[in-house]
């Protein structure tokens, strides 16, 4: 079954036409800019937490990262929202490109890792070598996922095969 009728319907919606067609800087350019800012705070703060687990800035207690999490989550939700708008703007471009699904998968895994890391910091026995080892593994996996997600996102502009339905 083809998803083309759905893509055609979405692309003819008023929201899609505004995102793509409006001359306003708040439309496509503004949404892209917000997507970059949200990325900087979500991926950037997650990377800093990962680096701290791996031994950077040892004077910062891991528990203190709880205070930075609301900023990270704000970046994440900003990007979920701006990402949906970009998807409504160009649904065919994204949904017919396997790299887009890879990007979503990597972000999904990165967020699961983040939640596991946060839980372990909150409830785990930090003195136990096994917990420390698990945390380090999660941190490395998280860095790999975020790097992959960002690279995949950037490559979307070069790997799509259909722009519109």
């Amino acid at each position: 079954m083809s998803i083309d009728p759905f893509l055609v319907w979405l692309e003819s919606s008023a929201l899609s036409e505004w995102v793509v067609g409006s001359d306003s800087l708040l439309a496509f350019p503004g949404i892209l800019a917000l997507h970059a800012i949200g990325m900087a705070f979500a991926a950037g703060l997650a990377a800093v937490l990962d680096l701290r687990i791996l031994g950077v800035a040892p004077g910062v207690p891991l528990a203190a990262f709880r205070r930075f999490m609301p900023v990270l989550w704000t970046g994440f939700w900003l990007n979920a929202a701006s990402g949906v708008l970009l998807l409504v703007g160009y649904p065919t471009k994204a949904l017919t490109n396997p790299v887009f699904y890879l990007k979503l998968l990597l972000i999904g895994v990165a967020m699961v890792l983040l939640v596991r890391i946060a839980r372990l910091i909150e409830h785990g026995d930090m003195a136990a070598p096994a917990v420390a080892r698990t945390l380090r593994r999660l941190a490395i996996a998280s860095l790999v996922c975020w790097s992959g997600a960002i690279t995949a996102g950037r490559l979307l502009a070069y790997t799509y095969t259909r722009l519109r339905a």
């Binding site: 990325m39 950037g44 960002i150 690279t151």
Partner: peptide, 14 residues
């Protein structure tokens, strides 16, 4: 360039 900006904003922003 995007990876670098995340590192920059993550560290300096913190």
């Amino acid at each position: 360039h995007f990876l670098g900006l995340c590192l920059l904003v993550g560290a300096i922003g913190s």
